[in-house]
Computed example of a mutant assay.
Amino acid sequence: MTSTTERTGKVDGRRKAAAARRRAREAQIIAATRELFDAKGVRDVQIEEIASAVGINRAIVYRHFTGKEELFALTLVGYLDELRETVQAASADAESPRDALAAMVGAFVDYGVAHPAFVDCAQALMVRPGDELLDEISEGALFRLGRGITSCLTIFSDTLARGVEEGAFALDDDPVLLANTLYASGLGALQLARLGILVHESAPGVPTVGQISPEQVRRYLVTSALALVTPAPRSA
Rank of each mutant, 00 (worst) to 15 (best):
P116N: 06
A203H: 13
A92R: 15
G148L: 05
E35S: 14
L142N: 01
T8N: 11
R98K: 09
G210T: 11
V42A: 03
L198N: 01
V11I: 14
E85W: 00
R84H: 14
A31L: 01
A73V: 08
F108Y: 09
A161E: 13
E136A: 06
S224E: 12
R63C: 02
V222E: 00
S91I: 13
L192K: 00
V164K: 11
A94Q: 05
F37S: 03
A31Q: 11
E70R: 10
N180F: 04
V209S: 13
F65W: 04
I47S: 01
A227V: 07
V199H: 09
V42T: 06
T75M: 06
I50D: 02
H115D: 09
G112S: 04
A17L: 12
R218G: 00
S52C: 01
H115A: 05
G148S: 04
V217R: 03
A189R: 11
D135S: 06
V54A: 02
R23D: 13
E82G: 11
A170Q: 15
A184W: 12
G67P: 02
L228K: 13
A24K: 15
T159Q: 06
D99A: 05
L195F: 03
S91Y: 11
P231C: 08
I149T: 10
S213Q: 11
K10F: 08
V222A: 02
P97I: 05
L195K: 06
R58F: 11
V176F: 12
L125S: 03
R128G: 06
R58K: 15
M1T: 12
R84F: 05
A100Q: 04
